[in-house]
């Protein structure tokens, strides 16, 4: 589904990502973990086209998106959330989803009127469904900026879904969440998988990663130091040395 081939990104002399290789298979939940500054976010930013890589290739669904702009990567089927939440704070919850829903509809709308006005009944009922999915139905008319932190994180995931992606990249969706919220997130991730959506999960909360992912890649200093199932990763000595042993999770 997503193939990362000898991907590198250098910022000046810093090798933020250094000849990275991994492949996310269709329909799986793939975890990307590593200490702070190990290149996880840079990888996500490269995949979604924030900046072009120094070298290497990114193939998604058979399509070369190495140098694609953000709106093109979304077009290809990749939606994402952000480590620091980026909602449309002065729009309502419903409008936040509506923006994403519309960008997905836009490609299909053929006549000018529906292109401009948008809003078929079907499209609106789908937005309702994402509201339900993220347990935000009773907050639909609330401004996104007024939501509690956990709700904002949920809304961001819902918004990514509303863009009808084949794959979602979640950048630390559990950061700042309590145990209860993490459990709900766990269930939601499984529900995504059940819908056939591939998930790339960047996360520090190990109980979530070890519980929910099918496979994991571990980064350190921009390089991959291990890849495997959660149990393989937990027993990997290099990973323990670099990350798990020291982080206290």
């Amino acid at each position: 589904m997503l193939e990362i081939k000898t991907l590198s990104k250098h910022f000046g002399g810093v090798r933020a990502v250094d000849e990275l290789d991994f492949t996310v298979r269709q329909g799986e939940i793939f975890g990307l973990i590593g200490p702070n500054g190990s290149g996880k976010s840079t990888t996500v930013n490269l995949v979604t086209g924030i900046f072009p890589p120094t070298a290497g290739e990114i193939i998604f669904d058979g399509r070369d998106i190495t140098t694609a702009q953000p709106h093109v990567t979304l077009d290809a089927g990749i939606a994402r959330t952000f480590q620091n939440i980026r909602l449309f704070n002065n729009m309502t919850v419903w409008e936040n989803l509506w923006v994403a829903q519309n960008s997905a509809e836009d490609k299909k709308a053929t006549n000018l009127l529906s292109r401009w006005m948008g809003g078929s009944r079907k499209a609106k009922s789908q937005v309702e469904e994402y509201l339900e999915f993220s347990a935000l139905a009773d907050k639909r008319d609330e401004l996104a900026g007024n939501l509690a932190f956990g709700e904002q994180r949920r809304l961001e995931v819902a918004r990514a879904l509303a863009a009808k992606p084949k794959m979602v990249l979640l950048d630390e969706p559990a950061a700042g969440m309590n145990r209860e919220e993490v459990r709900a997130l766990d269930e939601r991730l499984r529900a995504l998988k059940a819908r056939g959506i591939t998930v790339l999960l960047v996360e520090h909360v190990m109980e979530l990663v070890m519980e929910v992912t099918d496979r994991i890649a571990v980064l350190n200093f921009g390089q991959k130091i291990a890849e495997g199932t959660p149990s393989e990763i937990q027993n990997n000595q290099a990973v323990k040395d670099a990350y798990l042993g020291t982080s206290g999770d």
Binding site: R86, L87, V99, N102
Partner: peptide, 17 residues
């Protein structure tokens, strides 16, 4: 909608296609 989205948060708007 897209004008408001870009005014609100250009980066997020880009990632919403």
């Amino acid at each position: 909608l897209s004008v408001r989205a870009v005014s609100e948060n250009p980066a997020a708007a880009r990632f919403m296609g």
